[in-house]
Design a protein around this nucleic acid. Structure first.
Length: 282
DNA sequence: AATCTTATCAACCGCAGTAGG
DNA sequence: TCCTACTGCGGTTGATAAGAT
């Protein structure tokens, strides 16, 4: 007996989502949480398969998503992680809060690949491309030999990977844009020492004064929840990269959150008014 | 203004991994 | 241990916007 299809194909809608479908999906998840994707469409009154709903939520509707182009810092991180992990987009995305694997994959294919080739670096192997065959590329590479460009690239990657992580020169993501589990979230990896720096504490306390500060509940190992998801702890971020480089299994560091969906509603009232429109249900 | 080409990104498809019976 | 159901991931497609001719 063959494997059953993920959904009954007949009668299910495909293609772009309408605002009404988005509204239904968001309303349902805000009310009931993310439960069984397979049964969700029926319960939410959607003529979609569960897979499609999950994708729409994770790639587009999730309130903690960042939109817009990747920053230089994020790009460098993606390049570096790709050189270590290859096309493991989900893994790469897990190190870039608010970014999805799909988004990173698209950005890689449309921007970064070209950029690296232009620099004389093979985006597949992260090594210098073979010598050019046509004249135009030859001219291009006269400006920057591929070996020279590789060293430039490697140097920039070192900024990302070494303890001397250069945060002064790269356009870092605004603190309020970043939402990741804080160091109190379950982190069984013995390799990540969670030392919250005073600067981060200050940022957190500053932001806590702001009314719009979103909070999440995180599922602890024992089933209880830890309130108020913290902001990105840079020390964690750096040690995360180090851990990754050392081929340490990093999956357990960022456990899936159990969201407080009322808090999600608050998030939706923030920057992204289009999501607010969805919730108004008009 | 019309047509063609290229770039972008949301969404789909199929396979792999995993949990539970 | 096997089987099934389900989720997640990566590759690919297709619609559409933007730019070029």
């Amino acid at each position: 007996m063959g494997r059953k299809p993920c959904c009954e194909k007949v009668g299910l809608k495909k293609g772009p989502w309408t605002a009404d479908e988005d509204r239904k999906l968001v309303n349902f998840i805000l009310t009931h949480g993310q439960s069984c994707w397979r049964s969700l469409p029926k319960l939410a009154g959607l003529l979609r398969c569960g897979k499609s709903c999950r994708l729409r939520w994770t790639n587009y509707l999730r309130p903690d998503l960042k939109r817009g182009l990747l920053s230089e810092y994020e790009e460098n991180t993606v390049i570096h992680l790709h050189s270590q992990l290859g096309n493991r987009w989900a893994k790469i995305a897990s190190h870039l809060p608010g970014r999805t694997d799909n988004e990173i994959k698209n950005h890689w294919n449309t921007h970064i690949k070209k950029k690296l080739r232009k620099m004389g670096i093979d985006p597949l192997t992260h090594k210098p491309l073979p010598p050019p065959t046509d004249k135009s590329q030859e001219q291009e590479n006269q400006k920057h030999s591929s070996y020279e460009m590789q060293s430039i690239c490697e140097a920039s990657l070192l900024e990302v990977t070494n303890n001397g992580f250069c945060i002064d020169e790269v356009p870092l993501v605004e603190p309020h844009e970043i939402l990741v589990p804080n160091s109190s979230a379950p982190c069984s990896s013995s390799t990540t020492t969670t030392t919250t720096t005073s600067s981060n504490t200050n940022i957190n306390s500053l932001l806590e004064d702001l009314e719009f500060l979103p909070t999440y509940d995180w599922l602890n190992g024992d089933g209880s929840t830890t309130n108020n998801m913290g902001f990105w702890d840079m020390d964690d971020a750096f040690s995360s990269l180090d851990s990754l480089i050392n081929d340490i299994d990093y999956d357990r560091i960022n456990p899936p959150p159990t969201h407080d969906f009322n808090q999600f509603s608050r998030m939706l009232l923030g920057d992204e008014s289009w999501k607010f429109e969805l919730l108004r249900g008009d």
